[in-house]
Computed example of a mutant assay.
Amino acid sequence: MDIKYINPEYTSEDGRAKLKEQYENGTPCKHLVLDNFLSQDLAEKLHANFPSLDSLNVKRKSLNEDKSEDYHFERWDSSFSELREVVGSEDFYKWLRELTGIEGLITTRDSLGSGVHQGGNNSYVDVHVDVNMNPEAGLWRRVNLLIYLNKNWQEEWGGHLELWDKEMKTMHHKIAPKLNRAIIFYTDDNSPHGVTKVNCPDGESRKSFYTYFYTEIGEGFKYRDSKFLSRPDDKLSKKVMTSTKENIKIKAKQFLKALGVRSLDFQDKNKKK
């Protein structure tokens, strides 16, 4: 199986068999960490042409996160659209379905399909579980793909992706956002994840490309909103504030849903700021 721009080491018959086994045995959630995921030329081009932090339209800043994101591919270098086409192709779907064992995986063309995340110095995303539905498309969110685009990233700059267990007692993996490293993971209650605070020099930022994959809603689906979770070493005051804020948010969304108002998450992600 050949997929344009994807490392043939991962798409060969032997490679697929190894990845499938690694994914199934991943802890605390099913996941893969794939270095040199894209062709080096494409990775370098994406890095060199990554949109500036100030140009990204969606700014998320709260008690539990500080980052920017966007999904307006028409404003960026063509390499981003090329990558979106690859991860949204039938060949890629077939590859991902085989690795994960999830039939019918697809992505979408909206803000909850593909885009970019970026965070400057002091940016972070606290540990959370993802919302499990694309409300506009009416699809079940199942798998996340993150591709990091940070050249010469230093360990002391932070910005690691952390994977925690469901009970928030043990952090199992701490993954540096190095250039051309991809993370694929199953997103459910067993996949709390977050980004440690970035401490990078001026002119640097933590950059990534995201794609979320979905299936039709079927047996076993139960709506789950996104929710921030406290780390064991968080201050008591922050734990209380986080818990209170998240409970209020979820109850407010439930109330609005009962009134027929669409998801606040979707509204926020599509609002230019």
Rank of each mutant, 00 (worst) to 15 (best):
Gly218Cys: 14
Asp225Arg: 10
Val261Glu: 11
Gly119Gln: 04
Asn180Met: 11
Asn150Lys: 07
Asp35Glu: 15
Ser205Pro: 06
Ser123Ile: 07
Thr196Val: 15
His173Ile: 09
Ser263Arg: 09
Asn144Thr: 08
Lys239Ile: 15
Gly101Ile: 02
Asn25Pro: 08
Gly158Trp: 01
His173Gln: 13
Thr242Ser: 02
Lys239Phe: 01
Pro232Ile: 03
Asp165Trp: 01
Leu146Ala: 11
Gly104Ala: 08
Leu259Gln: 13
Lys166Asn: 14
Leu139Trp: 01
Met168Gly: 00
Ser237Trp: 15
Lys235Met: 09
Asp188Pro: 03
Phe209His: 01
Asp165Val: 03
Ser52Ala: 13
Pro232Trp: 12
Lys207Ile: 06
Lys94Gln: 04
Lys45Trp: 03
Gly220Met: 12
Trp153Lys: 04
Gln40Phe: 13
Ala182Trp: 01
Lys227Arg: 15
His160Asp: 11
Thr196Lys: 03
Asn150Phe: 05
Ile102Asn: 04
Asp110Pro: 00
Asp126Gly: 01
Ile217Pro: 06
Met171Gly: 11
Val143Ile: 15
Ala137Ser: 00
Ser191Cys: 04
Ile175His: 10
Ile250Tyr: 08
Ile6Gln: 03
Asp268Glu: 15
Ser237Asp: 14
Thr11Met: 00
Arg206Cys: 12
Glu155Val: 15
Pro201Ser: 08
Lys239Tyr: 05
Phe185Thr: 05
Leu56Cys: 08
Lys235Arg: 04
His128Ala: 09
Lys238Gln: 09
Leu139Arg: 02
Leu83Cys: 03
Arg16Val: 09
Asn247Cys: 09
Ile3Gly: 08
Arg231His: 07
Ile106Met: 07
Ser263Asn: 05
Lys45Leu: 13
Asn199Tyr: 11
Val143Tyr: 00
Ser39Asp: 12
Arg206Ser: 08
Lys59Asp: 09
Leu112Arg: 02
Phe73Lys: 00
Gly120Trp: 05
Leu149Met: 06
Phe80Cys: 02
Ile248Gln: 11
Phe213Ser: 07
Thr242Gln: 02
Thr100Glu: 01
Val129Cys: 10
Tyr5Leu: 05
Ala252Glu: 13
Glu204Met: 13
Lys239Leu: 08
Ala137Val: 03
Gly260Leu: 13
Lys18Leu: 08
Ser205Thr: 05
Gly15Tyr: 10
Glu103Arg: 11
Gln154Gly: 06
Ile3His: 10
Ser114Tyr: 02
Ser230Glu: 10
Leu19Pro: 04
Lys178Arg: 15
Lys227Trp: 06
Phe209Trp: 08
Thr242Phe: 00
Asp202Gly: 07
Lys59Phe: 14
Trp157Ile: 04
Tyr23Ala: 06
Gly220Trp: 07
Tyr186Leu: 14
Asn247Phe: 11
Ser263Glu: 12
Glu167Ser: 12
Phe50Thr: 02
Lys251Asn: 14
Gly159Ile: 05
Asp2Ile: 07
Ala258Gln: 12
Glu21Trp: 04
Asn247Met: 13
Ile6Ala: 04
Val198Pro: 03
